[in-house]
């Protein structure tokens, strides 16, 4: 059965996969690297997403999901998921369940993932919809922090050295992780995808991350970022609302649901890459995949490995989302022309 998704579903999946796990923590990394320049640096980098997606959209047909390439991406996405899983395990351990062994938490996560993977394709495609109200709720409460905002925290700019800017640019790639999913998901969308849709998506994405960066920046003092690794959660924790204490506890779970779905989308993509022969046996594939994931993920659930896998991921991302696609597309185009055939 050939899967067809609408462009709306494509963007929803892409958005959730790209925001999923990283949006609570990328602020600290960036601010620590470049200080107050983080916001404009991110804005500048974020604007690149539109040309990036545009190129992908223009040439996605030239990107063939042939054996070795598919294998490489499969492994890469698997590792992305494993590091997300490790991060989830670690974060939950720290924020809410200090005594529960991380492996138990991760096992539960993986059980849900397994159920999601062994379900129909439509389920993974559509489940993002339940997150939309939660995302809005999330934003609303993050915005409550504006009461205590100090706008001058955004200035002065231009203080960072070139070296720092470089480091910051690499950290700024974190929210871009997952953009290469577009190449795969695009193949399920029949017909053309207009550029303005890409532009709207890029705008929403940029707006989301920008405010997730700027609000903590105006809320916390610069020095605090060194101490706080999840600024968004920390902000929610310090909000004073009448009906309950510790908003963060509630929002940790919304974030978690978000990450679940993001991982589900990655898993869905990996499953799509499997060779036709073994693709059929859904449940078995899902089970093997989940066990592997748990095995790898549980190794990654300490502060050190979380940090390490995070930074390794950034370089892997640059390779898989920028270098490799363009290389493959170039090669395919050149060879395609040599053989006299039109680019497919």
């Amino acid at each position: 059965m050939k899967l067809h998704i609408t462009s709306l579903q494509l963007f929803l999946m892409l958005f959730i996969a790209m925001t999923g796990t990283v949006f609570v923590s990328f602020q600290s990394l960036m601010v620590n690297a470049v200080g107050r320049d983080a916001w404009w640096l991110f804005l500048a980098q974020g604007l690149l997403i539109l040309p990036h997606l545009w190129l992908f959209n223009r040439f996605y047909q030239d990107f063939k999901w042939s054996g070795p390439i598919a294998f490489l991406y499969g492994v890469y996405w698997f590792l992305v998921m494993a590091s997300f899983l490790g991060y989830i395990g670690y974060t939950l351990n720290v924020w809410a369940y200090p005594k529960t062994p991380a492996i138990v938490i991760m096992a539960l996560v993986v059980i849900v993932l397994f159920y999601m993977m062994s379900s129909r394709d439509e389920t993974t495609v559509n489940i993002g919809v339940i997150l939309i109200p939660m995302i809005l709720l999330f934003m609303l409460f993050v915005y409550m922090g504006i009461n205590h905002a100090v706008w001058t925290n955004l200035f002065p700019v231009g203080e960072a050295s070139l070296q720092e800017l470089q480091r910051g640019s690499i950290k700024a790639q974190l929210p871009f992780i997952g953009i290469e999913l577009f190449l795969l998901l695009r193949t399920f969308v029949p017909g053309k995808l207009s550029t303005w849709k890409l532009a709207v998506y890029s705008g929403i994405w940029l707006l989301f991350f920008l405010q997730m960066l700027i609000i903590p920046m105006v809320y916390f003092a610069l020095e605090e970022f060194k101490l706080i690794s999840e600024p968004i959660m920390y902000m929610l924790k310090s909000q004073d609302v009448a009906f309950m204490e510790r908003l963060d506890l509630l929002f940790v779970y919304i974030w978690l649901a978000w990450s679940f779905v993001a991982m589900g989308i990655y898993a869905f993509s990996v499953m799509r890459l499997l060779p036709e022969k073994i693709k059929k046996r859904r449940t078995r594939n899902a089970a093997v995949f989940c066990i592997l994931l748990l095995a790898v993920g549980s190794r990654l659930a300490t502060k050190e490995t979380v940090r390490l896998s995070g930074s390794l991921l950034l370089y892997a991302h640059l390779f898989f989302a920028v270098a490799l696609p363009f290389l493959v597309i170039m090669v395919n185009r050149v060879f395609g022309k040599k053989r006299g055939g039109k680019p497919a």
């Binding site: 610069l222 605090e224 004073d240």
Partner: peptide
């Protein structure tokens, strides 16, 4: 000030 604001102000140089 609540605790969080105290922390922010303690660390703020400005």
């Amino acid at each position: 000030h609540d605790l969080q604001e105290v922390c922010t102000l303690l660390f703020a140089e400005d």
